[in-house]
Nucleic acid binder design. Structure first.
Lengths: 227, 227
DNA sequence: TGACTGAATTATGAATTCATAATTACGTTT
DNA sequence: AAACGTAATTATGAATTCATAATTCAGTCA
């Protein structure tokens, strides 16, 4: 055992990147808006240099777009981008499911079981907030259980990139019931340590989730007469 | 048709990020070395501000690691990281293969065919340089053919991250012959527009490539007595 | 009144400066 | 001579400054 663990104090730079990314993901900065450098500097109490460094990083992650001599704007997530991102996330989740079956220990599986029960209860109570929370924790636990930093990192970025889309659409009752059922089957595969099975289900679950998402967006567009 | 296409002059920032990343990928800056801020500033003719911005981006991409108050070092690609990265790339290639079958037009397929022939000829001439070149172009064309920017971007990053590993190991004659055979079968699937088939083969091809890679590394370690 | 011109203002990109942390060099002590 | 402690030097992170590009706004002319 190593007693001299490296001290992990987050640097100003990382801190700024995280805070800024959250502003975008949590929708405090709206898509298309220009990023108010000055105000952010004041509210964070830093000068422009570290803030701009953070913006460059966020740009490389796709959360903002830089326009030469015109600063940064919050990236808009287009329909096309959603459709491109979804399958990639689905494949990463598939891989994660396979690896998680092999790598998670009993304690980790038990934790997922617990979250799963919480999620089912949230569903029965029709508590969307609690449902989303438990749902996200389950997926995170499975990704984490895959024990693959690269996979986790890329998944995290992609998931954050489309998370904002969640604010846009409501989960239909029908889809909600389906999702619960899919999760139930996923748990069965996990208990049985059926790696390929869990992977397949997770991929399918994601693609279904995304299809419902896209459908909800389309329906709303129709209502607004946007073709 | 739009005659007023936006002028795409690469900004100093992007230019720097690309140049620096190339220094790492092409092994001009060796893993573990500290990044010589001063010299790079002089050789690029820029001040520290934009260079450091670029370093932050490279850090988020994983090519360098930042140590608080101790600057940047070129990231070392560990065995563990290779083993984590390979399966992720393989899944992305699988998805790319499936999408490419659906999206590539006849001209694009013809181009891949041509590169494939060049690659086979390079193999027959045992011209490793030409082989690697053609091989990479084929994979890039298939990824591009998937017509999915998100997929392409993440694949590009991951591929660049492990590309340096190519410098470390030699392709064995046995594996070389296998690889050619796998590519031949991939072409058949592409011609037949068998999306799932091509995806499966591309995943398999990647995993085989990586297994050979790992084996070569292990063999060399054995020779050096590194256990 | 509305579109155009050009000066004033502001925002942006990049260099420079400054405070501080880390490293090195040196002298002291045992 | 080796190890420790301290001063000098260097490197780093971040603020500030500066030159330039973009935007705004007032004034002019059709």
């Amino acid at each position: 055992m190593n007693l001299t663990e490296a001290i992990k104090r987050p640097t100003l730079h990382e801190e700024l990147v995280d805070r800024l990314r959250n502003l975008v993901v949590e929708d405090a900065l709206k898509p298309g808006e220009k990023v108010p450098e000055k105000e952010l500097c004041e509210s964070f109490g830093v000068s422009r240099t570290p803030l701009r460094e953070a913006l460059k990083v966020l740009a490389s992650e796709g959360f903002v777009v830089l326009q030469a001599n015109r600063g940064a704007r919050v990236a808009t997530v287009t329909r096309q981008e959603l459709e491109n991102t979804f399958p990639v996330i689905a494949r990463l989740e598939q891989l994660a499911g396979e690896l998680a079956c092999d790598h998670m220990d009993a304690a980790a599986v038990a934790k997922v079981e617990a979250r799963h029960q919480e999620m089912v209860q949230a569903y029965q109570a029709r508590d969307r907030q609690a449902y989303f929370q438990a749902n996200q924790e389950i997926h995170q636990a499975l990704i984490r259980g895959a024990n693959n930093d690269i996979l986790e990192g890329h998944h995290k970025l992609l998931a954050a990139r489309v998370r904002r889309a969640r604010f846009m659409v409501n989960l239909s009752d029908e889809r909600w019931a389906e999702a619960i059922d899919e999760h139930e089957r996923m748990m069965q595969k996990l208990r049985a340590r059926d790696a390929d099975g869990l992977g397949q289900l997770m991929k399918l679950h994601m693609m279904n989730k995304f299809a419902a998402h896209i459908k909800a967006i389309d329906d709303r567009s129709d209502n607004l007469g946007e073709g």
